[in-house]
């Protein structure tokens, strides 16, 4: 479609400015740019396909409802992940109240699909899944806040500055926590990479 080509060259911020005026096409392009990133973030943060899909929808509903609050001088991805991060925090609070927090077992036996592409080596796929589950098993132990820091950095590849803005932490704190998380992961996932520094 012509409009898709036209809109695809625009920046997120320019598209968001159009969403503020009620442009549905601009919103479609933004949704297509970010839906997978948000979906995988929510699935790893909250565990479960249905919850992640609901949260994805919730994030974009917030985006529409609060479009007027968006400051175009700020980076769009930071603002969007700020909404997503706050939704995750609310969900964790809600779960704590109900005492039905997702357990590690929930995550391990979550309805996470294998890759759609059937040509992918099945052994590699299973190894990958096993490895990631081990990573997230360790992250679960560190708590939701540290898990979110890890996901924003390693999964979403956001800068430390952006993560600091999203979480409301100081940049130095984000850096030190990220290092701490990765160090713990490296120590605990030794079975994947044995460390020669072990005493």
């Amino acid at each position: 479609m012509d409009w898709k080509i036209l809109y695809s060259h625009r920046t997120d911020e320019a598209l968001m400015a159009r969403v503020q005026k009620g442009d549905a096409r601009a919103m479609t392009v933004l949704y297509e740019r970010y839906n997978r990133r948000l979906l995988v973030f929510f699935r790893r943060m909250l565990g479960g396909k249905q919850v992640a899909e609901d949260m994805l929808q919730e994030t974009f509903l917030h985006l529409i409802d609060r479009a007027g609050l968006y400051d175009s001088a700020k980076k769009f991805s930071t603002w969007l992940f700020c909404i997503a991060y706050n939704l995750c925090k609310n969900e964790y609070r809600r779960r704590q109240r109900r005492k039905s927090s997702a357990t590690i077992e929930d995550l391990l036996h979550s309805d996470y699909p294998l890759a759609d592409n059937l040509t992918v080596d099945l052994h590699e796929e299973i190894t990958s899944r096993f490895f990631l589950e081990a990573v997230f098993r360790e992250l679960e132990k560190l708590g939701p806040e540290r898990k979110s820091l890890f996901l924003l950095r390693c999964q979403q590849e956001l800068s430390v500055h952006e993560i600091a803005e999203i979480t409301g932490l100081a940049e130095g704190t984000v850096k030190s926590r990220l290092f701490y998380i990765n160090k713990i992961l490296a120590d605990r996932l030794e079975s994947f990479h044995p460390s020669p520094h072990k005493a």
């Binding site: 839906n35 997978r36 979906l39 995988v40 699935r43 294998l114 890759a115 990631l132 999964q155």
Partner: peptide
């Protein structure tokens, strides 16, 4: 390894 697998996981998503 973690980054690669997380990226691969992202591309396997199918949004509703």
């Amino acid at each position: 390894n973690i980054k690669d697998r997380l990226t691969a996981e992202q591309s396997a998503q199918s949004p509703p």
